[in-house]
């Protein structure tokens, strides 16, 4: 069966999730990897319905912007305190997509250029510093692996990678563990905890991934080919995201926004239809 790179990445990301932990669904690739893991090898995962507001919602929640549960859905409401307590207790997982990630797993979503006079001011560190000081698995993904996204040194450390500050202040707690990109799967077991290739996606060569990376990569002793999604993986992904929100993460900003607005309206109509079908069910 034909698959696309988003589906390959989601499948690779799903393999990293297991255990009785909350899993954030703040991005569509993150959400779909959590749904896939839960429906295959990790039924114990407590998948958050939306960025912050509930978990274990049935039927499957919608993917655009979350924060909306209809009367046809039910779930367990959560507070911000619940979320951060789960982070501090290491019972939380999140796939984070930074604008830049560097050789030692520092990540940036704050600014391109100097912080005080940025060339591009992005969004601010959000909750990444909390994750990178507490979790035993720190998971990153990048949909456009290039020397501009996988860089020698990030312009600003929104999240703590490896380095002398980590050694002194944090140790292993909150250290980066995985990176999945459109080219391959990586860990931080290179020299001095630098980025290292674990597997390459089908058709991707060592030269190609090196060319797309701003610093010399190391490769695991045995680099394998990333396993492709099975037919049932693909069926789960496609059923969970019939409007293909996942494809937006591979588009440029304005085009993604325009497509999202269309999907958002179709999704509302779908929710209304589900409401109508389920009328009376939870009353």
């Amino acid at each position: 069966m034909d698959y696309s790179v988003d589906e390959l990445m989601i499948t690779a990301m799903a393999r990293e999730l297991a255990g009785e932990v909350m899993v954030s669904s703040v991005t569509s690739l993150g959400a779909l990897s959590a749904y896939l893991a839960k429906r295959t090898h990790a039924p114990e995962l407590a998948v958050l319905s939306t960025p912050e507001s509930g978990m274990e919602v049935t039927p499957m929640p919608t993917l655009t912007l979350g924060q909306f549960m209809t009367d046809a859905q039910q779930g367990i409401p959560l507070t911000m305190e619940d979320i951060f307590d789960a982070i501090f207790l290491d019972r939380f997982r999140i796939w984070i997509n930074p604008a830049q990630i560097d050789r030692f797993g520092n990540v940036n979503i704050t600014a391109i250029g100097p912080w005080a006079s940025p060339r591009v001011a992005m969004v601010g560190s959000r909750g990444i510093p909390e994750d990178t000081s507490h979790l035993s698995a720190i998971l990153y993904y990048v949909t456009n692996h290039s020397p501009r996204t996988v860089v020698e040194r990030v312009d600003f450390r929104s999240g703590a990678g490896y380095g002398s500050e980590r050694d002194r202040l944090l140790g292993q707690r909150g250290a980066p563990t995985r990176l999945v990109t459109n080219l391959g799967v990586f860990d931080f077991r290179g020299p001095d905890h630098s980025l290292s290739v674990v597997s390459l996606h089908p058709g991707v060569s060592r030269e190609q991934v090196q060319e797309a990376t701003a610093f010399p990569l190391s490769f695991a002793a045995e680099v394998y080919e990333t396993p492709v999604p099975s037919e049932s993986d693909l069926a789960i992904i496609r059923a969970s995201d019939p409007l293909e929100v996942r494809k937006l993460e591979f588009l440029g900003g304005r085009e993604a926004a325009e497509r999202l607005v269309q999907i958002y309206e179709r999704e509302r109509q779908a929710m209304r239809a589900a409401l109508w079908q389920n009328r009376g069910r939870f009353r």
Binding site: V120, S125, R254, A257
Partner: peptide, 23 residues
Amino acid sequence: VYAFVGFEIMGLAPNFRRAREQQ
């Protein structure tokens, strides 16, 4: 004082961005 200012997948916050970049 902020942890994040943005419009999520719709884009960056334009006036915030300008004010940050032009200080």
